[in-house]
């Protein structure tokens, strides 16, 4: 696999984010946080949308990397959560190669990664190290 600094990682898109997938994740994680599965009706009658789990948002970045370099390629993933993803949103994971080097005989790529949601809002930003050999 020929990788160069500045190469974009093929984007990974998904949507709409559904309440069903959030509920499935909540059940797997045994996550009791109601923001992921129980819409709240405010006093003004408006209903709050469910909020996607952080591990799902990171999972979208992982899916992008796996599709690019394979299921065993990720060596490090470091992310910071900036904003929430809500049910009904569309998301797009993207990234760019910032460096390439050799680590214990493996060719690796250092990458900047990010996740944006509907409207272009930044949701998550971070860095990834992946095997490319």
């Amino acid at each position: 696999m020929n990788i160069n600094v500045g190469d974009p990682i093929p984007t990974w898109s998904h949507g709409p984010v559904t309440a069903e997938r959030m509920a499935l994740m909540a059940a797997i994680l045994r996550d009791p946080n109601p923001i992921h599965f129980e819409p709240v009706t405010e006093s003004n009658g408006e209903t709050n949308s469910r909020i996607n789990q952080g591990p799902l948002n990171v999972g979208y970045i992982a899916n992008m990397l796996i599709d690019w370099t394979g299921p065993a390629s990720i060596k490090r993933l470091k992310v910071r959560f900036v904003a929430n993803v809500f049910e009904g949103d569309y998301v797009e994971a993207s990234g760019v190669v910032t460096a390439t080097n050799s680590d214990d005989g493996e060719e690796v790529a250092e990458c900047d990664v990010k996740l944006i949601r509907s409207g272009g809002d930044l949701v998550l930003t971070g860095t990834a190290t992946v095997r490319v050999s």
Binding site: H14, R21, L24, M25, L56, G59, N63, I66
Partner: peptide
């Protein structure tokens, strides 16, 4: 199931 929740490709 977790992979399904992330909308990733099936293992």
């Amino acid at each position: 199931l977790l992979t399904e929740a992330t909308a990733g490709k099936k293992p």
